[in-house]
Design a protein around this nucleic acid. Structure first.
Length: 272
DNA sequence: CTAGGTGCCTGATTGC
DNA sequence: TGCAATCAGGCACCTA
């Protein structure tokens, strides 16, 4: 599923390919993906130049020449694909942006959880402001301490809360907690200074690794980059999806529990 | 405030 | 073999 490293990989791919391009048209067979409506989005993007492409948490945004912003969220199974006019239809393809130069930007989504939302400057700022700091850009150790302080929820749930920290999803939360040697069920404010610092570093480490390997395409995962290629971090995961398999550190069995409704993988011996 | 549940979706997996 | 039930989960939204 696209988390920070996956969405950032797509963003970088797109930045090279479509910034400066003009949107000549847009077609869809799934108007429900659009907000406020397909009609409004179509009218707002048609003929506009793409000025920039950014990312906040797991949300991508295109800045358009008319000072509107197109927000694109991939949720679980969304894909953004760069194709050429006439290329075969993509699996689960629901939206096509026809760009200058014979290029197309396609949005595909097996489950139709994702969305494309067109907003003005004010709403754009408001939406982006609702996210917590960016772990690879904005967040220092003191910020992170502040986030954990006074919160009694299991620490893993805090890592997944986009209003507190941006961009971490289930895969990287599991991996970071393993690297830090912390039980995902621990109450956030029960972590010592040392543990907090270890977790902070572990978050940076696993997100950077994920970026380096161009994301994680887990076995049941639909993530691919903007060229339709899988990531490679799945070959380096330590615990995610490894229930019942040996822990890479101690060879003990990795356990799977449910936390906040999500699969949670950890080594009971290495994570205290 | 937190904790828990539901809905959105459909391909893959499991159970009978 | 074939079909139905279950599972996967980011996030909004609801209730207690």
């Amino acid at each position: 599923m696209p988390e920070l490293p996956e969405v950032e990989t797509i963003r970088r791919d797109l930045e090279k390919a479509i910034v400066g391009r003009k949107i000549l048209g847009i077609t869809t067979d799934a108007e429900k993906l659009f907000s406020p409506s397909f009609k409004a989005v179509s009218a707002g993007v048609n003929g506009q130049k793409i000025i920039a492409i950014g990312r906040r948490a797991k949300l991508l945004h295109l800045s358009l020449g008319n000072h509107l912003y197109l927000l694109i969220h991939l949720k679980m199974t969304g894909r953004l694909l760069l194709r050429k006019k006439g290329d075969p239809r993509d699996e689960f393809q629901h939206v096509v942006f026809i760009l200058g130069g014979g290029e197309e930007l396609r949005f595909a989504d097996m489950r139709l959880f994702g969305y494309l939302k067109l907003v003005g400057e004010e709403e754009f700022k408001k939406i982006l402001g609702e996210y917590g700091p960016e772990p690879l850009l904005d967040m220092n150790l003191a910020d992170f301490r502040g986030i954990l302080q006074g919160r009694s929820k299991p620490v893993k749930l805090l890592l997944l809360d986009q209003e507190l920290i941006s961009g971490i999803g289930n895969i990287y939360a599991n991996e970071a907690l393993f690297v830090a040697g912390i039980d995902p069920r621990r109450k956030a404010d029960s972590l010592s200074e040392k543990e907090t610092s270890r977790l902070f570093s572990a978050i940076e480490k696993v997100l950077s690794e994920g970026l380096h390997y161009r994301g994680t395409t887990a076995s049941d995962d639909k993530y691919v980059d903007a060229y339709g290629k899988k990531g490679h971090y799945q070959d380096h995961l330590r615990v995610y999806g490894h229930g019942g398999l040996p822990c890479p550190k101690c060879r003990g069995k990795i356990q799977r529990v449910t936390l906040g409704g999500r699969g949670t993988f950890f080594c009971p011996a290495c994570q205290k």
